[in-house]
Amino acid sequence: MKFLFQFLITIAICFILQTFLPWWSMAIGCVIIGYVFNNGSLQSFVIGFLGIGLLWMGLALWIDFQTQSILTEKMNRLLPINSVVLTGLVGALVGGFASMTGALAASKSTRR
């Protein structure tokens, strides 16, 4: 339950943050959310990875659908792998490590 909750909150908060702030603002969001929820570090990594991955891929797919893939097709020729997948992967990696950092920091302080 806590897993699902952190996952949804990650998506929602990072969506808001990124609407106004540069791309790395989601990492700050993930660290804080990871800290607050204090899930296991590996669990938190998975949440951040899936949450940001889905957020980035979801928005990319939405834009792709809205614009009838006009740019996606060109970028697929430019980038080494599919641009939606690469977008999700890059977001997911940063999101995962950021969430894990938050969780690790939290677990440390609670043990003391």
Binding site: A60, T67, Q68
Partner: peptide
């Protein structure tokens, strides 16, 4: 810069137009 470039909120995705 891949993070900046791929970010669907600000990166190249925002250049897709209708």
């Amino acid at each position: 810069p891949l993070g900046k470039f791929l970010d669907p909120f600000h990166g190249f995705w925002q250049n897709a137009e209708k």
